[in-house]
Design a protein around this nucleic acid. Structure first.
Length: 199
DNA sequence: CCCTGATTCGC
DNA sequence: GCGAATCAGG
């Protein structure tokens, strides 16, 4: 595969949207993330402000691990280039009616009824911070269906399983954990937040 | 281990 | 110009 105009365009678009190189590569097909990254650099658009990348501030030494010393290292003085600030039009995000407040593991509450619900421990003891974070993250959620989940997608359920408004977060999971960063935050409370909250 | 981008350098 | 191999970090 070669870098046709269209492919480059898609690359730019996705990169601008903050998509990862691997995602872009997957989308394009026929190329690896390395190819994408290489291209990105060649195109001049690189630095973004997303996790996973290193700040890049220290002019690292060149250890020349494998190849013998190559006096070819020219300090090509490349002053910071402004790079066209891609406005990045509003994300398509089809989130129209998502006021989801149940940021709690949607559980099919089969309460026989009769009495008020017993204090659900995990419901109100979540730190406001984590909650806020989740509410934000859920706007960006991939909204996957059960079958779309993989071993690396956040399996945090949102909404009521009995409703059509039910989906799984689907964002990249935090290594190991079954949930994404934000959801790990509310899923695994340090047990310190067991503060007595007055209502 | 999974992932991320950054860099080098033979092609 | 391209991108695999590698590096460096989360």
């Amino acid at each position: 595969m070669s870098w046709t105009d269209e492919r480059v365009e898609l690359l730019k678009k996705m990169w601008g949207e903050g998509q990862s190189a691997s995602q872009i590569a997957k989308e394009l097909g026929g190329v690896t993330r390395n190819a994408v990254i290489g291209k990105v650099h060649r195109l001049g658009l690189s630095n973004r402000t997303t996790g996973g990348a290193k700040p890049a501030a220290e002019p690292k030494e060149k250890p020349a691990p494998k190849v013998a010393a190559k006096p070819k290292a020219q300090p090509k003085t490349e002053p910071a280039r402004p790079v066209t600030p891609e406005p990045a039009a509003a994300a398509p995000a089809a989130s129209a009616s998502a006021e989801s407040k149940p940021s709690v593991p949607a559980r099919k509450q089969i309460i026989p009824a009769g009495q008020p619900l017993p204090p659900q421990p995990s419901a109100n003891e979540i730190s406001p911070e984590a909650l806020a974070k989740v509410n934000e993250i859920e706007k960006k959620a991939k909204r996957l269906t059960l079958m779309e989940l993989t071993e690396r997608t956040c399996k945090w359920p949102v909404g009521d399983p009995a409703t059509e408004d039910f989906w799984f977060c689907g964002l990249p999971v935090q290594q190991g954990k079954p949930y994404c960063d934000a959801h790990v935050g509310v899923a695994f409370q340090p047990m310190s937040s067991r503060r007595e909250r007055k209502r």
